[in-house]
Write a protein that binds this DNA or RNA. Structure first.
Lengths: 109, 109
DNA sequence: AATATATATTGCAATATTACGATTAATGTA
DNA sequence: TACATTAATCGTAATATTGCAATATATATT
């Protein structure tokens, strides 16, 4: 078919998948890194820095925003994007739970 | 176009994106959780447990393996899949670097 | 009000992903 | 060797993503 069967998974699994998908693109990783380093937080600057067209950056920002990972504040004619602290911390926690649940011991092969 | 411009990003950004993409699907999250909890580590069992067809699980396992996150050991007629410890630890580290690089202080908005 | 600047949206073509039935390949057992 | 069991691959249809040019929207300035 081609459509993910979200109904057979838990809300946690689906939400984690959605947020990871938002990060799982090199351009969006680069955008997040730039925002965090405060090198650039507005669309046009990011487009210049990363070498992608303005509409492309705008779309990536939209996806990150839809996933709740960043927030935008209107500043005159431009928009300043930055990390959404709660979602960021929550995702970090969820990932830690997943990654820490594995101990080298319980490997069966 | 529709093709990611990997050449304008660093190897680290691209690799991280690939591995995150591998995890960024509810079925693959569920598979990893099952493998870690040692509830099931063979294709058929996972198919039964998760309610997806055997070829579908096989494809998801292949993607996780391609990303280097799991490894498969042939055990008679079946294959036991488990976490690839090094890649797992490395990804955990990379994610920690990314997530920890953000401090609530340096938000510009 | 007209102009400049910055972001968002639309539309499109190329590509990638998702899921599964049918089939094939590989190992173990009678 | 024939048969059973399990995993992988192939083929296909549906859907989603990626990137950009063109355009629209929104705010600031003159």
């Amino acid at each position: 078919m081609g459509i993910t069967k979200t109904e057979i998974f838990t809300d946690e699994q689906n939400k984690l998948a959605v947020q990871l998908k938002a990060i799982a693109h090199p351009a969006r990783i680069a955008i997040l890194q730039h925002i965090i380093a405060a090198k650039a937080c507005i669309c046009g600057d990011l487009a210049d820095e990363l070498g992608l067209a303005q509409p492309t950056i705008s779309q990536h920002l939209k996806e990150l925003k839809n996933a709740g990972l960043i927030q935008g504040t209107i500043e005159g004619v431009s928009v300043c994007y930055c990390i959404e602290p709660k979602a960021w911390a929550n995702l970090q926690k969820e990932l830690n739970v997943l990654f820490s649940s594995y101990k080298d011991l319980n490997s069966c092969c």
